[in-house]
Simulated scan of single mutants.
Amino acid sequence: MGIGDRLLAKTANVGTKPTEPAQARPTDSEPRTSPGRLMDAQNRINSAQARIKELEAQLEDKAALEVSLDSLIEVSGRRRKLTPEQFQELKNNLAQHALATPILVRTLPGDRFEIVAGHNRVAAYRELGRKSIRANIASIEEGEIEFAAFFSNLLSPSLTDFEKYWNFKRLQELTGLSRTEISESAGLSKSHVTRIFSFDLLPDAAKTALSEKPERLGSNAAQKLAALTEAGKAEKVTEAVRRLVDDETFTQDRAVALATEKQRTTAPSPTVIKRGKRKVCEVSSRNGVVGVRFFEKNATEAEEWAQRITEFISKSLGESSGD
């Protein structure tokens, strides 16, 4: 059962029949209660499903036409992210065979078209040097596109955890559902949804880098890196994520280890004390420990200096307490 079906089942007793269209309401009266938000989501799902059926009927009656690649507009965030291997496989297939399924577009002013489905096919055609592509044109509203695309992609097995995170965020924006409500509606555990939302706590620079190769970081490692970010290690986390993206041999465990490691401090150089040109001793300090090393191994002289140092410290402390 998909998330759309789960939302429908969850809201079956709220009071709105699935066959009823969503009622128009003022923009300043968004539902605030959980049942209200779920009912609103249900209405959006019903509308999206109805529009999909309408589009399917339209496409049965209309033949695909050739549209110029230069006339196509891609909406950021809607394109499915493929690995380089997956995209190359698609490109090789299209280089040898005709396009089996036309892309879907909607008409924009100025003889332009917005891509609804088929972004990767368009990208492959462009790299192959093609000038046009077969497309079906349908009438569909912006909100309907986003909502329908969301439910068709959200729980795809090939969807990476980072892409699921972005889709969950979009679901919140579309419906106002809380994370708990999302987990219940999607049939996922709260802990799983919490891990997915760990990406939200990563530094913006890290998320920007990760958007290039979202498959490089899973939610388990993301949760650990998010905790390190909150602990004040945002720069190290960003560095680790960039290493993941740039170096295919760099593992997620190594990324967490890189962000976890403490900053190394360089110990100050010891001070050498001389008598004339002859080195007598050196004084060093490290991790709160002060050490004196004599170059000439004279036990008696070392003991005398140890006594003098003890007397000096005691006297200094006494003078300080007297102040």
Score class of each variant (00 low, 15 high):
residue 132 S to R: 03
residue 190 K to R: 15
residue 158 S to A: 13
residue 158 S to R: 14
residue 189 S to W: 07
residue 178 S to I: 05
residue 118 G to D: 04
residue 150 F to P: 03
residue 152 S to W: 06
residue 170 R to F: 04
residue 181 E to C: 06
residue 182 I to T: 08
residue 164 K to Y: 00
residue 168 F to C: 07
residue 130 R to E: 10
residue 132 S to C: 00
residue 153 N to E: 14
residue 157 P to M: 01
residue 184 E to G: 11
residue 152 S to C: 07
residue 190 K to Q: 15
residue 141 E to C: 01
residue 119 H to Q: 10
residue 189 S to L: 11
residue 122 V to N: 00
residue 139 S to E: 15
residue 163 E to Y: 01
residue 131 K to Q: 10
residue 167 N to L: 14
residue 190 K to F: 11
residue 179 R to Q: 15
residue 123 A to Y: 03
residue 142 E to D: 14
residue 140 I to G: 02
residue 166 W to K: 12
residue 160 T to V: 06
residue 185 S to C: 14
residue 175 T to Y: 12
residue 143 G to D: 08
residue 189 S to G: 13
residue 185 S to D: 08
residue 134 R to P: 05
residue 136 N to W: 01
residue 137 I to C: 06
residue 127 E to P: 07
residue 180 T to Y: 13
residue 130 R to Y: 05
residue 122 V to Q: 06
residue 183 S to G: 12
residue 178 S to G: 15
residue 139 S to Y: 12
residue 193 V to R: 12
residue 184 E to T: 11
residue 129 G to E: 06
residue 164 K to L: 00
residue 149 A to I: 04
residue 143 G to K: 00
residue 146 E to A: 11
residue 168 F to L: 11
residue 122 V to L: 00
residue 131 K to H: 02
residue 154 L to P: 10
residue 151 F to C: 03
residue 185 S to G: 15
residue 118 G to R: 07
residue 119 H to N: 14
residue 155 L to F: 02
residue 195 R to F: 05
residue 179 R to M: 12
residue 129 G to D: 00
residue 177 L to D: 05
residue 193 V to C: 08
residue 172 Q to A: 05
residue 137 I to V: 15
residue 180 T to L: 10
residue 155 L to D: 10
residue 126 R to D: 13
residue 136 N to V: 03
residue 159 L to E: 14
residue 188 L to Q: 13
residue 165 Y to P: 03
residue 158 S to M: 10
residue 129 G to F: 09
